[in-house]
């Protein structure tokens, strides 16, 4: 009886999984490992080894690592402040930081494009102040800025959620046993917040690594990330086989990085998506 109801309850999600996760994955696997003539080939995988593609992958990894690090550096102090806020409405403050997420992500990136453009909002302001213009549009810097802006809430939320769960008396106990603030942070607070750090890193690093919208809009056609290359294969060259092959390579990279990150998480109560 119980098994039957469990089965029934899981049916909608099961169908969803099948239709929109498993079948597409199988299709990518199929396209990635076959050629246009339909025969098995590793040609699509080997495509990553071209100089242009390797360069794009390497740049993607570097930029995503950098934006993840920046997000962590910005979000951690912020989450600590929010945690220590004795306000009744610290939840409201968290909401303020989440609010940009309520706007369409594409719109937000286009807004940044308008700000950073050669004759954009930022440079107009700088000109009024008689300061030299800042030309970072269509550069890796603009892409990292876009990534940090877009994905910061995904770092703040899990961090805040784990930090706020740390019992105040655990911190008091550390002080009581003679620890100063620095020691308490490094030995108690930070280790206890690791599940949040892990899921924050995951939730920023993975979308940064695979994005093509941000690099497309803020990088112009000058900076190509691996996401852009894959997008071109599908959209411009209409080559599903090579696009899928490159996607498979990227997925392997995501899996490897998650495994690496996960090693530092001692398994207990991972607060995040994994």
């Amino acid at each position: 009886m119980k098994r039957k109801s469990t089965f029934l309850l899981s049916t909608p999600y099961g169908l969803w999984m099948l239709g929109f996760t498993i079948i597409p994955l199988v299709m990518i696997l199929y396209y990635g490992l076959t050629g246009r003539n339909g025969g098995f080939t590793l040609e699509n995988i080997r495509l990553i080894a071209t100089e242009e593609n390797l360069k794009a992958l390497w740049l993607s990894i570097r930029l995503s690592l950098l934006s993840t690090l920046l997000c962590l550096l910005v979000a951690y102090p912020l989450a600590m402040i929010l945690r220590n806020t004795k306000f009744k409405n610290s939840r409201f403050m968290v909401m303020l930081f989440i609010m940009p997420m309520w706007m369409n992500s594409l719109l937000r990136i286009i807004a940044w494009q308008n700000i950073l453009e050669r004759r954009g909002v930022l440079n107009t302001l700088l000109e009024l102040l008689h300061l030299p213009a800042l030309n970072i549009i269509n550069s890796p810097a603009a892409i990292v800025l876009g990534m940090v802006y877009d994905f910061l809430p995904f770092m703040v939320l899990p961090l805040y959620n784990t930090l706020v769960k740390i019992d105040e008396n655990v911190i008091n106990a550390a002080h009581d046993l003679g620890a100063n603030n620095f020691y308490t942070f490094t030995k108690i607070i930070f280790p206890l917040s690791m599940p949040g750090v892990i899921s924050g890193i995951t939730m920023v690093f993975v979308p940064s690594l695979t994005t093509f919208v941000i690099s497309d809009i803020l990088g112009g056609s000058k900076v190509l990330l691996i996401g852009n290359i894959i997008e071109q294969q599908f959209q411009k060259l209409n080559n599903w086989h090579s696009g899928s092959g490159l996607s498979l390579v990227l997925m392997v990279f995501v899996l490897i990085s998650m495994a690496l990150v996960g090693k530092y998480d001692k398994g207990e109560g991972s607060a995040g998506v994994w």
């Binding site: 019992d167 008396n169 655990v170 008091n172 106990a173 550390a174 009581d176 046993l177 108690i188 280790p191 206890l192 690791m194 001692k266």
Partner: peptide
Amino acid sequence: LNTVFQKYALFTH
């Protein structure tokens, strides 16, 4: 002096 807290406050990690 040292304190023993309500609900133990052990370092779970």
